[in-house]
């Protein structure tokens, strides 16, 4: 039997994403590590009431980690398009209040919800979700707004906050290369949330530059074994950075 998790297109790979779905998607902030073609396909599909779990709420008003100062396509286009009901993130707004993101504008109007999570807690909640750990105690956020309403316990002489695991219906992640069994390798500083997210969703869809045959990826450097991955989509334009203007046209 030949196993192949490679799907013909981003559009088909997201065809079963439903209204109200919880979707994890990475991108530390810039286009590196961001599954841009899957995001464009989600916008085309038009699903609504999505809950997005990501480091940012779509930094669509500033040029973070993007050469040439352009504005990259990220999940901000889904927020701007009214498809997102809630975001779980650590970095929901731009650093400068004078350049508000789509998310901040809608948040001020009360049209989107925010669950604000410290970045390390976010990563750990996702890792816990994928690892079958329902909750854990962390010192992060003790004595701050983040701890409000949560169980706080003194462990090892310090206050710790109980944080629960995060899981999702889908994870749209970005890797560098895959084989057709779904094994993934990543590039540079774009591992970020992609690696833990690849373990924490029911359907994990990986957008990659290239698919190779099993055995061609060095088993010593595979970071995400294929058992986590359901679908692999090869980018139509491997090296391309989609900017908001180009994204709108495609």
């Amino acid at each position: 039997m030949t196993v192949s998790k490679v799907w013909p297109s981003a559009r088909e790979a997201v065809a079963d994403v439903f209204d109200g779905a919880v979707i994890m998607m990475d991108g530390f902030g810039g286009p590196g590590g961001m599954a841009q073609e899957l995001i464009l396909a989600l916008r085309e599909r038009g699903v609504r009431d999505l809950t997005i779990i990501s480091n940012t709420a779509g930094l669509d008003s500033v040029s973070f980690g993007t050469p040439g100062g352009s504005l990259p396509v990220n999940h901000g286009i889904l927020v701007a398009n009214g498809q997102v009901r809630k975001v779980i993130a650590s970095f929901p707004v731009s650093a400068s209040p004078s350049r508000p993101t789509s998310f901040e504008l809608l948040y001020r109007e009360g049209k989107v919800e925010l669950e604000l999570v410290p970045q390390g807690t976010l990563a750990e909640r996702i890792r816990a979700g994928g690892a079958g750990v329902a909750a854990f105690y962390t010192p992060t956020g003790a004595g701050t707004l983040v701890a409000e309403g949560k169980e706080v316990r003194v462990l090892d002489g310090r206050e710790h906050v109980l944080e629960t695991a995060l899981k999702a219906d889908f994870a749209c992640i970005r890797a560098w290369k895959a084989d057709r069994l779904g094994n993934l390798v990543y590039r540079g500083s774009s591992r970020n949330f992609n690696v833990p997210m690849a373990t924490a969703a029911r359907v994990v869809i990986a957008e990659v530059d290239e698919v190779v045959e099993p055995g061609e990826l060095d088993p010593e450097v595979i970071l995400t074994p294929g058992l986590y991955v359901k679908r692999v989509v090869v980018r139509r334009h491997p090296g391309k950075i989609y900017t908001r203007e180009q994204g709108a046209a495609s």
């Binding site: 650590s90 970095f91 929901p92 209040p97 410290p118």
Partner: peptide, 18 residues
């Protein structure tokens, strides 16, 4: 800044704790 009503925690709380 309370006047903004929303802000980025980012990695700062983890650094402060860790």
């Amino acid at each position: 800044l309370p006047s903004r009503g929303i802000g980025n925690i980012g990695g700062a709380m983890d650094l402060a704790a860790g």
